[in-house]
Simulated scan of single mutants.
Amino acid sequence: MTPRERRLREQAQRGRLILTTAREMAEAEGWDSVTTRRLAERIEYSQPVLYQHFKNKDAIVHAVALEGFAELAAELRAARLGAADPQAALDAVARTYLDFAARGPVLYQAMLTLDVGLEHAGPDTPQPLLDTFAEIRDAVGPVAGERDPELLAEVLWSAWHGLATLSWGRRLRPGPEQERLAALTGLVTGPVRQPS
């Protein structure tokens, strides 16, 4: 390994450590507790070293959010491709989306609640966001009939986000999560089906 290759590998490892530690700190204490000073102390590097990798805290949260979108897209793809038929695929994608949000509410917050400069519908939309939306659209497409699958995907994504946010904030009564999801999908794509 050349000295340059070693430096690049070490640099990538430091960047990975910064993101992993930021995510762990946020999961434990929330994003407000993650500061560049505290993060530098936790990983035992100086703040200037941290700034060699990320311009500021927003850049760190931005990178964490992109990782989250890549993870979500992969989970949605697996759910969609693992289903037996188009309606089952959409149901699986919906459940997977809400399960992802419930498992990692702080990551979900970085992805879809905090303003970290991620544009979701513009010419500079990062690929992980495009991939996530494509999985939702591809699940909706086969059941859309004559309707615009892209529009239905936007409506469903918006509604799933609302359910995830309201559930996380304990604004909805616990219990009928699957029934709520089936009713929502039915309202958008056709008759209400009972969850399986």
Rank of each mutant, 00 (worst) to 15 (best):
residue 75 E to V: 06
residue 103 R to L: 10
residue 110 A to P: 02
residue 128 P to E: 12
residue 172 L to W: 03
residue 156 L to G: 05
residue 107 L to H: 04
residue 124 D to H: 13
residue 81 L to V: 09
residue 92 A to N: 05
residue 103 R to H: 13
residue 113 T to P: 00
residue 114 L to I: 06
residue 126 P to M: 04
residue 133 F to P: 02
residue 97 Y to Q: 02
residue 87 Q to T: 14
residue 135 E to T: 09
residue 155 V to K: 03
residue 67 E to D: 15
residue 79 A to T: 04
residue 141 G to E: 15
residue 192 V to T: 15
residue 105 P to H: 03
residue 154 E to D: 14
residue 94 A to E: 03
residue 80 R to H: 08
residue 89 A to C: 10
residue 148 D to F: 03
residue 189 T to M: 14
residue 69 F to M: 10
residue 159 A to C: 13
residue 171 R to C: 13
residue 196 S to G: 15
residue 126 P to A: 07
residue 194 Q to T: 14
residue 120 H to W: 15
residue 185 T to Q: 10
residue 143 V to D: 02
residue 119 E to R: 14
residue 98 L to G: 03
residue 82 G to Y: 11
residue 183 A to N: 01
residue 136 I to F: 06
residue 194 Q to G: 13
residue 99 D to N: 06
residue 144 A to V: 08
residue 87 Q to A: 14
residue 100 F to I: 00
residue 112 L to F: 13
residue 128 P to S: 01
residue 117 G to F: 04
residue 111 M to C: 07
residue 130 L to V: 09
residue 128 P to D: 11
residue 132 T to R: 12
residue 73 A to Y: 05
residue 68 G to K: 08
residue 116 V to L: 11
residue 87 Q to S: 15
residue 106 V to T: 15
residue 169 G to D: 10
residue 86 P to I: 10
residue 131 D to K: 01
residue 109 Q to M: 09
residue 108 Y to V: 04
residue 141 G to H: 09
residue 79 A to D: 08
residue 120 H to E: 12
residue 68 G to I: 09
residue 188 V to D: 02
residue 81 L to E: 15
residue 113 T to M: 12
residue 138 D to L: 10
residue 69 F to K: 05
residue 163 L to V: 11
residue 119 E to K: 11
residue 150 E to H: 08
residue 136 I to Y: 05
residue 172 L to Q: 01
residue 111 M to R: 12
residue 139 A to I: 01
residue 84 A to W: 08
residue 189 T to H: 14
residue 139 A to N: 02
residue 72 L to A: 13
residue 142 P to A: 13
residue 131 D to T: 01
residue 146 E to V: 11
residue 189 T to Y: 04
residue 111 M to P: 12
residue 142 P to Y: 13
residue 164 A to S: 11
residue 124 D to P: 03
residue 72 L to G: 04
residue 180 R to I: 07
residue 195 P to W: 08
residue 155 V to H: 12
residue 98 L to Y: 00
residue 193 R to L: 11
residue 157 W to R: 15
residue 96 T to Y: 05
residue 106 V to I: 15
residue 145 G to T: 08
residue 161 H to A: 06
residue 127 Q to M: 00
residue 98 L to V: 13
residue 177 E to F: 08
residue 116 V to K: 00
residue 102 A to H: 10
residue 80 R to T: 09
residue 189 T to L: 15
residue 112 L to P: 01
residue 109 Q to I: 01
residue 147 R to Q: 07
residue 186 G to R: 04
residue 159 A to I: 10
residue 192 V to S: 06
residue 114 L to G: 00
residue 94 A to V: 12
residue 129 L to E: 02
residue 119 E to A: 11
residue 191 P to N: 04
residue 161 H to I: 00
residue 150 E to P: 02
residue 135 E to K: 11
residue 142 P to L: 08
residue 173 R to Q: 05
residue 155 V to T: 12
residue 151 L to S: 06
residue 100 F to V: 02
residue 133 F to D: 00
residue 149 P to F: 07
residue 180 R to E: 13
residue 118 L to T: 01
